[in-house]
Design a binder for these strands. Structure first.
Lengths: 343, 343
DNA sequence: TCATCCATCCAAAGCGCTTTCAATTCTTTC
DNA sequence: GAAAGAATTGAAAGCGCTTTGGATGGATGA
């Protein structure tokens, strides 16, 4: 059933039927009803491609997902993010198209998406510190929104980020208050902008208290469970091992817990751990009392809101870019306690 | 830069340029070179929507992702699956469009996808035991492939599944061989087809050895970390608690490990655990010696191969549906050992 | 009564591509 | 050297929709 058939059936022109269905004013209420009823009856759905071609808008938003070269992995956070974004898209009638790319620098994917015209806008994932993709997208004039930020971009653009620096600063401060002086940092890859900011927060908190930053206590890798395990196993062998750890995600935090248990120690008593918690649906941080003390910020909510920002930008092309900074909440769980050795 | 511009630039007709770029034989090699060079130079990309409209093929494949009503969660396995599928799509020039749907029964999403014509085929995720979606898709005549199977569909269709029954049968047998008689089953939701098959394998293995099936030892829920933790905490309070557990995914297995540790016991010594392992990139089951004894099958590889099956079906509409059954490998790790109480 | 306006509808062009059918030129073949 | 065939190109229709620029007729006002 296409527009031609439907209008023939109704004895109306395609023009009128199209207008009736799209809510244009120059059609009488009576015929609008009649058209709507017929469309419903024959379950008419306008062909997206034809519509796109005619309007010049594709009603689709592209997500370019970088695949890590090292582990060939997709960020586990990703599922929840697009679940949130998907809600916003569905509400606004947008489709979501995914492109998984090995090398996130690959500018061709972006250029192609634009030239082929199959998206109206793009969500940029996992921005790096000096991310060339932002300048590129500004250059080609395709609306976009970034999940996170890139540090060195002078011109404004749409982004939504967690205040990573303040979150890790507070978390570090919390551990220092508990008497910990040797705090391990298991960061994400520091080419990533968020990881860089987190380290800045950690370092600043230490320096404020006059505690020297020890490079031996800082790691930066992709956030797998094994990473957490291995890194802590190794750090525990140091002459003056950490009594606390700050880690960038629940997944490696689980590895840390494993390492602590394997060493015959108790998390929250012998060794403290604070993790960042993206509030993943399949990895809830405990029900009543959180298992981990954590800096929490829902990545699903981030997806939802960033999608809205992008849709807004697409609908109002002239509008000044929006930015949104989530403050993570520091929730105290059972993985932290006073530094026993310090007493 | 569109076809009109490009052909004007070359002093050729749109027809010839189109043919040259799409590899039709009726164009001289000389002009083909010339066209290709110009297309490259001006980085011409044909407009997807116009192409789709003209050819009737959208070069996109839809994934309808069910969102669990209970936890509002996206299956954590999903990221790896589409990473695999994405590879195959990219190689064949297909886009991937995602639709996240609250109620997986919602037939309208499928009908709409077909009517709106924005996909050439669909991947069905998380099939239930008697899944109406398959008959629906057969009915509307949209090519599709199922990740998993539905039990009660008489007509053939494309699917790719792990041999869940044999995997869990062997795993149960393995535990029985170690002297375990009380084996807890932490299954996925048994409305899901895969969960049903796994239970069948578990039950059959017990019955073969003449061991009574105890309903108190069987759970069926969505696979979160908390589920694993809670279920085991509760089962350990039973008068005659399990000495071993069989669990459907790494995520709840991690919860099980937590419960065992919290009880002051050692996994692999006091209590044995076998999990199914989807070989997720961020949750590798140990490096050298696997942490968990597991029935393993790569979900990423499943994505890759199922995508190929679907593309093949789309390219050869008349072809008889393909099916593929992966056998999971049983890898022995450190989470299993003989039943100490049985000696 | 006539001119004007408004409400309502339609024909046709156009979005950027593919593809059918026809035209033209260049080779063969006898 | 003419007829037939092959190679190469182009004009134009069509995919299913939106939207511009009328057309039509009834209501309104003087």
């Amino acid at each position: 059933m296409n527009l031609k058939d439907l209008s023939a059936l109704l004895g109306l022109s395609q023009t009128t039927v199209s207008r009736a269905l799209n809510g244009y004013p120059e059609v009488s209420e009576a015929t609008r009803q009649r058209v709507a009823a017929a469309a419903e009856k024959y379950s008419y759905r306008p062909n997206t491609r034809a519509k796109s071609l005619a309007t010049g808008r594709s009603m689709a938003i592209g997500h370019v997902i970088p695949i890590s070269a090292q582990h060939e992995m997709v960020n586990p956070v990703f599922g929840d993010f697009i679940a949130g974004a998907g809600e916003a898209y569905a509400a606004a009638g947008y489709d979501m198209v995914l492109s998984l790319v090995q090398d996130s620098h690959e500018e061709r994917v972006y250029r192609d998406m634009f030239a082929k015209g199959n998206v109206d806008g793009i969500v940029v994932h996992a921005p790096e510190m000096h991310d060339p993709r932002i300048a590129l997208l500004q250059d080609i004039g395709l609306p976009f929104a970034v999940h996170g930020r890139a540090s060195d971009v002078p011109t404004p653009y749409n982004w939504l980020d967690v205040n990573n620096k303040s979150a890790f600063q507070r978390a570090t401060g919390f551990l220092l208050d508990l008497g910990h002086k040797r705090i391990g940092l298991l960061n994400g890859l520091e080419t990533m902008d968020f990881a860089h900011r987190r380290r800045a927060g950690y370092v600043e908190a230490l320096q404020t208290r006059g505690i020297a930053v020890d490079k031996a206590l800082m790691r930066s890798e992709e956030m797998t469970e094994n990473y957490g395990y291995q890194a802590v196993c190794e750090m525990m062998k140091l002459p003056d091992p950490p009594t606390a750890y700050l880690v960038s995600s629940m997944i490696p935090a689980i590895g840390i817990r494993r390492a602590i248990h394997d060493a015959g120690l108790k998390m929250g008593q012998d060794i403290s751990v604070i993790t960042h918690d993206d509030d993943l649906s399949y990895l809830r941080n405990g029900d009543d009392v959180p298992l981990f003390t954590a800096t929490r910020s829902s990545v699903r909510e981030a997806g939802r809101q960033l999608a809205r920002i992008l849709i807004d930008q697409i609908s109002n092309p002239g509008k000044v870019p929006q930015t949104k900074l989530f403050e993570a909440e520091l929730t105290v769980g059972r993985s932290t306690g006073p530094n026993v050795g310090a007493r």
